[in-house]
Design a protein around this nucleic acid. Structure first.
Length: 512
RNA sequence: GUCCCGUUCGUCUAGGGGUUAGGACUCCAGAUUUUCAUUCUGGCAACAGGGGUUCAAUUCCCCUACGGGAUACCA
């Protein structure tokens, strides 16, 4: 079986895509790229009632941010379109297969009302039946092709009664299939029910649409979350009933991503409670207006996000952890995906971001990003060399580009106040005089750069008989107003002579 | 309830019949840095429990517990 590699990511636009969905998309992407296969984006919007405005657009944007590009899809087009299931349904693409199933006896009409279905469930619940649902045991007592005469069925359909088409699940059959992550998985058909294939109104359910589309789009591997594992036997039966079992795609069910505390599948709800984001990009709910801040807006690099996500449920088998996009594409293997659910770990994600900030990103790129971040903070005419200086001084001590500004503000503007605790501890009687004297000594430094500054300071301190330890800390306070940060001499070199001397003299005055 | 999937340091994980059970994050300590951070070195810390099989089980099998998923005219 050598079917060309083709995979799809098929989200439902019922809300913003969350991190678990992003990982599913990523695994599909990595697999497709590694094999030179097709990657498509299909929108599963068969439940028109649950559509959320802006969700589809959000999905596209988020994936674009992460650099997950599609070969075919709602935006890209392609030979298997349309790629929105509601449009495919309008074209009658599902109806014909439902009819085929009806004709071959694999499906049947059912006319039960919602109340009747509910009554059936209540009854089964009371009886404590071990197997619940609309199935071989119960369909004989419901309103459908099994209990109605063919004439009456035809009449009801013809007169426009509301009906659904259900799958005729065999009563006693072992259904076995292979999953690349889990091996052989088997279910007994008696545990399954007669799922609705075509809803009243003619829209297909997920199950029918999914199987038909994967077949028509020539999908070779279905890579999706574990929540779909229990519906896979139905899908297998559908492929069989439709006569497509020979070309049925391979199944890959990914372990779920749990909340950081391990309590349940990751959700926006617990995210809010525990204070972490579950969305790649910021999302504003159109109904409530509530805003959920995304990872992009928090300052995470897409590359760091991808690296982190790739390792959530998969690993290459050795100790390599920092892998860029190309490396991931090269090393990714479906066979090495884990079977057990995984906790979402913020600390590790932050660490990845720091790694990308320190060692995986070109300085020029950081400069570009810093310029944007600075602009957002009101610093809009910083020169290239100034930005470069900030990057060099700050990249090893922050987690995000924007922190170079919040934590290195003194590099861009003179301090307006001085840290009280540090002042009390470091600024003594004579300190002000020393600072003025040092400023005068620095006045003579011809080439304003690190080595010359250090030498000049060394010479001045020796001449004045003052230990260097007595002046470094106050010098830092005078220049930055705070206690931590890059080397004092580095800061002075970066600031330039006029600015440095001005700050020194100002501090001597205001600190006494 | 029933079915399905799972269970190695706090977290992400490697491993696999005989290992000092390895790495990463977090945390702690030391070195470097006259600050902070980086970097480096070291440390704490795990095979869910019970039965088998076997000379030997964390590894294979069964049971239990626990976790998760599914049981919709939602995906």
């Amino acid at each position: 079986m050598t079917k060309p590699i083709a995979v799809r990511f098929a989200p439902s636009p019922t809300g913003p895509l969350h991190i678990g969905g992003v990982r599913t998309a990523l695994y599909n992407y990595l697999f497709a790229r590694q094999h030179g296969g097709r990657l498509l984006l299909r929108i599963e919007d068969t439940d028109q009632g649950r559509l959320v405005e802006g969700a589809e657009n959000y999905i596209q944007q988020s994936l674009a941010w992460l650099g997950i590009r599609f070969d075919e899809g709602v935006a890209e087009g392609g030979p298997h379109g349309p790629y929105r299931q509601s449009e495919r349904a309008a074209l009658g693409m599902y109806q014909q297969y439902a009819d085929q199933l009806l004709a071959s006896g694999w499906a049947y009409y059912a006319f039960d009302s919602g109340d009747e279905l509910e009554a059936m469930r209540d009854r089964l619940q009371k009886e404590e039946a071990s197997i619940q649902g609309y199935n071989a045991h119960t369909r004989g007592s419901m309103l459908n092709s099994f209990t109605l005469s063919p004439e009456e069925v035809q009449e009801r359909v013809a007169r426009g009664d509301s009906y659904v088409i259900r799958f005729n699940m065999p009563a006693d059959l072992d259904i076995e299939f292979q999953d690349i992550v889990r091996g052989t998985v088997s279910f007994h058909s008696s545990q399954l029910d007669d799922k609705v294939l075509l809803k009243a109104g003619g829209m297909p359910t997920y199950h029918l649409a999914n199987v038909v589309d994967d077949h028509l789009m020539e999908i070779s591997h279905v890579i999706r979350g574990e929540e779909w594992l229990s519906s896979t036997p139905l899908h297998v039966m559908l492929y069989r009933a439709l006569g497509w079992e020979d070309t049925m795609p391979a199944f890959v069910h990914l372990p779920l991503i749990l909340n950081p505390n391990g309590q349940g599948k990751m959700s926006k709800r617990t995210g809010d409670k525990l204070g972490f984001s579950v969305f790649p990009c910021t999302w504003q709910d159109p109904e409530s207006g509530n805003v959920s801040v995304g990872y992009r807006e928090q300052g995470y690099f897409p590359e760091a996000m991808i690296n982190f996500l790739a390792l959530l449920g998969w690993n290459p088998g050795d100790e390599e952890e920092i892998m860029d996009r190309d490396r991931l594409i090269e090393r990714f293997r479906l066979e090495r995906i884990n079977q057990s659910p995984t906790n979402f770990n913020l600390d590790k994600l932050k660490w990845f971001n720091e790694q990308y900030l320190r060692t995986q990103t070109e300085e020029a790129e950081l400069v570009r990003q810093l310029a944007a971040a600075a602009k957002a903070e009101g610093f809009d005419n910083l020169g290239e060399s100034q930005l470069q200086g900030v990057v060099r001084l700050m990249r090893e001590r922050v987690s995000f580009v924007h922190e170079m500004i919040s934590q290195g503000r003194f590099l861009l503007e003179a301090p307006e106040s001085y840290d009280e605790a540090m002042k009390a501890k470091q600024w003594k009687e004579q300190t002000g005089e020393w600072m003025l004297a040092l400023a005068n000594a620095w006045e003579e430094v011809a080439t304003w750069e690190l080595m010359a500054l250090e030498a000049a300071t060394e010479a001045w301190a020796a001449g004045a008989g003052i230990g260097k330890g007595k002046i470094m800390a106050p010098l830092r306070l005078a220049l930055t107003g705070v206690s931590g940060g890059p080397g004092v001499m580095d800061i002075a070199a970066f600031l330039g002579k006029p600015e440095t001397l001005a700050r020194l003299r100002k501090a001597a005055h205001s600190l006494g």
